[in-house]
Structure formats: C-alpha cells, structure tokens
Design a protein around this nucleic acid. Structure first.
Lengths: 337, 337
DNA sequence: AACATGAATACAAACATTTGCGCAAATTTT
DNA sequence: AAAATTTGCGCAAATGTTTGTATTCATGTT
C-alpha cells in the first residue's frame, strides 16, 4: 500500500543535485538545457514515477486543459454519439472533457455553465435546452473570455460559433421524398419553436411543398415539447382532422416512435395507413420491425468532432485577437429503411 | 468585452486595507474574524465579482473536487441513467464529474484511468470493459490512494467497493417466471464470461432449473461478446438444435433485440414461437410493438446514486484510516411487458 | 499599576510549477 | 588575443490560496 506521496520536480532536482528550474526546463525539452542533463532528468523522473501536479501548472499557466460540454441528455443516442466524437478529438490533444446534462431545463443549464466558469474550463460546447430563450449564462462565459461553440441546437444569433446540420435542406429532401411517392397530404410534428432547428425543419417542409405546388394546411403543422404525452396529443389532433394526413414528418426518431405508437392504439397501422419520416436515424431504429420509412442521418459523431476541432482552434488561437465567429454545416443524408 | 481579469482575495484585501489572510478566513466564515469585517469582505467580494481560483485551492488542499467515471458506453441507457444518478449526487456535494468511455476496450479503459491519475481526481467509479480480465490500472489507483467504487460490472474480488444488482436472484426469478408459464426448454444467451455479472446470470438460471427439477442442457448455454454479429450467430446455433428452446434468457435488452431480429429473419416469430426475457428493462423497449416478454428492471439511476454516495463517503473519510471495502446490492424487479 | 485573557487581525511560509534574468564557461568571431 | 556570442544552468519571483503562529489592542483581574 505504498502511498506514493507526491513526487515533485524538487525531488528530482535534489536527487541529481541540480536546480529546480533546470528540471522544469528539461522536462519541457527546453533548448537551453544540455542533452545529458535532459536524459538524466527523464531517467530519474521515470524512476521516481513523477506525475506533474496539474494544480501547480494550472496556477502558473492559467489553463485547465479541460472543456465543458452541456447537452440536454445523454441517453439520446444522437448526443452520446456526438460526445464520443468530441471526446476523441479533445483527448487526442491532451485535453479533458467534463459533461453536464441540462435535462432540457434552463435552470440546470445555467448551473452547469456557472460550474464551468468557476472551474475555469478552457472552452465550452453547448446544445441549448428546450427551455432556453435567452442567453444570459452564455454571455457570462464571454465575459470571462471562455470560448463557446454551439452544437446542433444553436441560437439564431449570427455572431456565435456553431456546428449544425443543414436541416432546411434535409427537411426539404425528406418532404420531397414523400411527395415523390405520390403522397400529397403531409403533416409535420415539429419540436419546440424556440429551437431554431424546429424552425429550420418547418422552413424546409414549407419550401418543399411550395416548390411542388402542394397546398399547405395550417392544421398539418404541429409542435410538441418532445414528451410522449404531448406527442400523443398532437398526433391525435392530426388523426381526427377531417382530412387525415397520409404522412408525417417528425422532429426526430423518438417523436416518430411516439407518434407511431399513438397510431397503433387507435388502430391505424404505421407504414401502411400512414407514413413516417424523421430526423436522427438513431441506431435504435435498427431494432424495430417497423421503423419510420426514412430518417435523416445527421452524422452526430462527425458533428461532435467538428465542434471539438473548432473549439480547440479558438482556444489555441486565443492569445491573438478575437476570431470572427464561425459556422460549420454538416451535410445530412436521407436514409430509407 | 470587459475581460474580467482574475479578481483575487488580494484585491479584496487591498480594497479594504486588511490582510489577505483575513479575507481568506472571512470568506470561510472562520470564527476568529469579526462580524463587521466578514460583512465588508462579502460585500466587496460580491461587488468585484470574485470567483475563487480552483487551482490555488487545489494546490493548497491537494483536492480536486472531481470524480472520474469510466463506463463502457454512454449510449446504453442503463449507463446514461446511472450517470445521471451519479451526477445528481456528486454535484449536490459540490463535486464535478468527468466521464470517459472505454467502448469495451481494455486499452481505452487503461488510458482513462491514467488520465484520472494525472489529473488527480478525488475518486473513481468504474464499470469494467468486456475485455478486462486483470486489474493492473485499478491497482495503480490504489497506489495513489485514490478511492475506487466498481459499478454493476464488478470484479469477483471481495476486497473492493462495489455497487451491483442482485443478479443471481433476478436470473432465478426470470427463469422461474418462464417455467411457471409451462415453458421447460429454456436457453440462456449470456454475456462474456470474464464479466462476473454473466456468471451470476448463469448461476441464477442454473439454480432455478435445478430447484424446479428441469433438465439443464449444455447446448442451451451460450455466451456472446455482445455484438450483433456474434449474437446472431449464437442465436442461430440455438435455433438449429434438434430440440429448439422455447424461451431464451438474454444478457440484456440489446442482446434480446438482436436475437429477436435473428429469429424474424429465419421466419420464427418472437413472443409466439419463442419467448424472450432479458435484463435492464430499457426505455427503448417502450417503443417496440413486440418487446421481450419481460425484463429485469435494475434501477440504474438508483444504482448510480448509491455508487456516488459510497464514493463520497470514502473520499471524505479518507483522512482516517482505511475503511473496509463495502458492497451495496440493489434489489431488482422483473417487469412483465 | 501590572498582568493575564481573549478577540481580532497580520505576517509569512507553504503548495508545485514556470519563467525572466543573470552569470559563468565554452565557443566563435573579429 | 580580445571581443562577441552561445551554451548550460541557477536564483528568485510569481501564480492565489490556506494556515500556524505572532502581534496588537482592549478588557477584566489582581
């Protein structure tokens, strides 16, 4: 149980009879230190099992080599895949990731950001909660000079860094896909309207119908708060319309699955009586006998990677003047099941 | 863009014309500091927007207020629910959580642990990878005096802290459940045998058959590496036996879903021709028209909470002598769908 | 009046590391 | 051979906080 009690560069210096500063420089491969000295230092460091004390480094350099991620959920595979992408990039560069879940609550989101500030992370990647309409906490990050990259659920604001899918185009494509099947009565079961990605879906849907000269019915446009209950309710509203839609474009796979369940309860058979197309293309759908007809693959892993790369770029360029905000758009792909 | 440049207790001291140490003690509500002074200090701290520098605190106290979690995956809801439980407890106590995924690779697991050591986390919660058979990295944690709690996938070793479900009993119950339905030919599609939780499932299965005086067939006992491919393969092996099993006890819901898919491809209808019972009771099954017949609810969130509580207890008692390792067993519940 | 008591605060060291500056010795340039 | 430069290394300050000990000052006791 030999409690290795904190080997420091001081110990190494003592062992070799040289100055602390020399050890420090040797370990950093400073050019002014002789080769022989360096070798000795490394040898002793290894032998004593030296591990640099991150606190001391942080104190001097004022850098934590840590980035914070705040996402609505982890259980949504879209987000956990994204995290994997982020983690891979971040940790390859020697940084660490700390993750917080907002659970789609503004209050939790704010708390997470506060904690990021007080732990002095070097940067933040965020996907806003379903409740977020103002960005006070995020502004606070800026006040402290902490770089921020929004992910997927991004604000409308142009003056921020963001990584997102080209949702408008994807929604256009998905809607057109249905239309090409000869389906004309297409509804949309969208997400909360404060999320820009909801509006983008609507826009793509709208443009597609427009371009195909199909009529647009206000009653075919519904928003849900993403819960099962609300989705059931909105789906029922759609099914009790005088003109039942033949297909529904859903905010994401979960919404689609809820909606399909709701149908079944009413004796309406999904993929026969009514068709579903959705976003995310989650692996979960691979387990289903009866998945949505098609789903938009958003390449969450790749999106995560890109977000991490962008953030690191900003962090490491930070000494220079402010960079102009960047927007990275990841292509999507409609996958037919 | 007022770059708040690091307000320190020194600034507060200067502003009030008092000593740095007085400010430090005032902020900690030290009894030796006068009430009036404390009030002034708090007022100025608030006004200057003082945020304590975690690096300096860490350097002095040698404590990071951070715990590391290494799990095989995040996308498995069992684990992400557990993380949520952990996070809730940990952050309520003012600690932070850093999460790493091993992706069931030993090498990644080792890397994560190494990184935890070099960032000097106060404690670690781990669920071992499917590849882990030796515990070198974990021993290393002990060498550095970092408390460790194993979670769900725990080693056989008795001398470690663990939080786990009472799997043997659950497997017993699940098997009995099938038997009570009049099913006698029950197979098991288990996980990798280096995971203790696989052996426990087998033990429960075995005991149940034994206690009901049902025959045990070696050919009915299969292990998979949890991948889709291998599960398909093993399931086919079961289906091509001269005596086809009537039911399969699966390692978890994913394995069950893979197995059910495999059946469907062969024209065998799950829940009609053959029954499935599994572990985890994931929310994902709520989306299915045809879920496994029953699944063992393991209360992942609660397990996470318990693991976090245990870890914090060890961390905060650390100054005292070594505590004896503890084992917390969480009750399970067979949920019939 | 001398003195102990206790409260309130100040001083300074310590934590582990980085870094600007300085100083020799060695090497090169003039 | 003198001057300039380079090389290799040490000294000490600095980072922000905590904490053991010292100091001051007022109060109360003899």
């Amino acid at each position: 149980m030999m409690q290795k009690s904190q080997v420091t560069i001081k110990d190494i210096a003592q062992e070799l009879g040289i100055a602390i500063s020399t050890v420090s420089r040797a370990l950093q491969n400073h050019p002014r230190i002789g080769l022989k000295t360096k070798e000795q230092v490394f040898e002793v460091a290894k032998r004593l099992n030296y591990v640099p004390n991150p606190a001391a480094i942080l104190l001097r350099k004022n850098k934590t080599y840590t980035v914070g991620v705040v996402f609505p959920h982890l259980q949504e595979e879209f987000f956990s895949q994204a995290i994997t992408g982020i983690e891979d990039v971040i940790s390859a560069k020697g940084y660490n990731v700390v993750i917080s879940q907002s659970r789609d609550k503004l209050e939790r989101e704010n708390r997470a950001i506060k904690s990021f500030i007080s732990s002095r992370v070097d940067g933040v990647i965020a996907s806003i909660s379903a409740e977020t309409t103002q960005y006070y906490s995020f502004k606070e990050l800026e006040n402290y000079g902490i770089p921020l990259v929004f992910f997927d659920r991004v604000p409308k604001d142009v003056a921020v860094n963001k990584v997102r899918g080209n949702i408008v185009e994807a929604a256009f494509e998905a809607t057109s896909f249905l239309a090409k099947k000869g389906i004309t009565k297409i509804a949309i079961l969208n997400g909360p309207s404060n999320l820009e990605i909801s509006n983008e879906r609507l826009e793509g849907y709208w443009k597609a119908l427009k371009s195909l000269s199909l009529p647009i019915f206000q009653q075919y446009i519904k928003s849900t708060d993403l819960t099962k209950e609300d989705t059931f309710k909105k789906m029922e509203e759609l099914m009790t319309l005088p003109e039942q839609p033949q297909a529904v474009l859903c905010f994401n796979d979960y919404v689609a699955l809820f909606a399909m369940q709701s149908c079944r309860q009413k004796g309406i058979i999904p993929n026969t009586d009514i068709h579903f197309v959705s976003f995310a293309n989650l692996p979960i759908t691979a387990y289903l006998d009866n998945p949505p007809m098609a789903s938009v693959e958003q390449f969450a892993y790749k999106m995560g990677e890109q977000a991490a790369l962008l953030l690191l770029k900003i962090i490491e360029a930070k000494q220079d003047k402010k960079l102009i905000p960047e927007e990275i758009i990841i292509g999507t792909e409609l996958v037919v099941h």
